[in-house]
């Protein structure tokens, strides 16, 4: 394993201090915790807290700032943060209008966030949560813990964040977040797996000419393997699987995200984006806004995911609202 680190044990700690040193105008770290909050402190609005394992940078700390999150909790690499850390974040960002937790659907995350919610509620803080489950690679049957939360989560941060900034109440912000969740779907693939520093080797091994379809964002294996083909063909597969959900049809307006997994050159993401536009245009699906870049990564994994969000007037308004955070700036 070759990594630019000092010691496996200090990765999260050193990263968070590095982030605050880079963006002091946006974020500060809660003393003694792996939590980033807005530099200016809580304000008179509903506060949003998200988080999860580290290794998905810029998620989630990079989205702390005006128009998006108020706090982000960083767990160890790919491991859900613990309840005490989440609880501290909730206390720190609470401005009296309540706190909404945005949780990606993983057993560990859901349990740890729910325990923190119980702790904060016992303190008299009004807390509620939403669970993002946008990954269509996982069949949503009663036999699994449900779909995983992946890149679509960033749209929840953006849109719920704008709703909170606009002064909506906790239950209204939650309603908007849930509307995003029911209209957003993603699917990803990998050319190469990532290496968790503490594990020292890749999560799975692929032959030189093999790719893994349906991967999550934790180096876990996907739904199947196949021979590599050109990126247009791969993009088609991801989009087809998303469209098979039946929620996007001709005449709809959507937002599109081509998300890099951390080790993919932007050049390749743009090529995928070009084709995604051609395909969606061809189906009469109107792309109102496109995001291409590394939003929800998986360490050094090479690959990408496609996310589609169906918009209505309300979602469009909040998507287009300004945001000013380390990793998402929009005016």
């Amino acid at each position: 394993m070759k990594k630019l680190i000092n010691s496996v044990d200090n990765i999260v700690d050193e990263m968070l201090d590095g982030m605050t040193a880079a963006f002091p105008q946006y974020v500060k770290r809660l003393e003694g915790f792996n939590v980033l909050v807005r530099a200016k402190g809580p304000s008179d609005k509903v506060a949003l807290v998200s988080g999860g394992g580290s290794g998905h940078e810029p998620s989630h700390g990079g989205f702390v700032g005006r128009g998006m999150l108020d706090g982000a909790v960083a767990g160890e690499v790919f491991t859900s943060p613990t309840p005490d850390q989440i609880y501290e974040a909730v206390k720190a960002v609470n401005g009296g209008k309540g706190v909404l937790l945005i949780i990606k659907n993983y057993t560990g995350d859901v349990m740890n966030f729910e325990m923190a919610e119980d702790m904060a509620s016992d303190d008299g803080i009004t807390v509620s949560h939403v669970i993002v489950a946008d990954d269509v690679a996982v069949e949503n049957s009663t036999w699994t813990t449900g779909r995983r939360g992946i890149a679509g989560t960033v749209f929840v941060h953006k849109i719920a964040g704008a709703a909170a900034e606009a002064g909506l109440t906790l239950s209204e912000v939650k309603r908007v977040a849930e509307k995003v969740i029911s209209n957003v779907r993603s699917m990803g693939m990998a050319v190469n797996a990532c290496t968790v520093p503490a594990a020292g080797k890749p999560g799975f091994e692929l032959e030189d000419d093999e790719i893994e379809i349906g991967i999550g964002i934790h180096g876990e294996p996907g739904t199947h393997r196949e021979k590599i083909s050109d990126v247009n063909n791969i993009t088609d597969k991801l989009i087809d699987k998303i469209l098979a959900e039946g929620i996007y049809s001709s005449g709809d307006e959507i937002a599109l995200m081509i998300n890099g997994m951390g080790g993919t050159p932007l050049m390749e993401l743009f090529i995928a984006n070009k084709h995604a536009h051609e395909v969606l245009d061809g189906k009469g699906i109107k792309i109102a806004k496109t995001y291409v870049g590394n939003y929800m990564t998986s360490l050094d994994m090479e690959g990408f995911s496609v996310t589609l969000l169906k918009l209505d007037d309300e979602l469009k308004k909040f998507l287009n609202a300004p945001a000013d955070t380390p990793a998402f700036v929009q005016f």
């Binding site: 394992g53 767990g75 160890e76 491991t79 859900s80 943060p81 613990t82 309840p83 005490d84 850390q85 993983y106 057993t107 560990g108 349990m111 740890n112 325990m115």
Partner: peptide, 12 residues
């Protein structure tokens, strides 16, 4: 364990 393990096994 609750405050150090994380993941699914920490709360459990």
């Amino acid at each position: 364990l609750l405050s150090k393990v994380g993941g699914a096994s920490g709360p459990l």
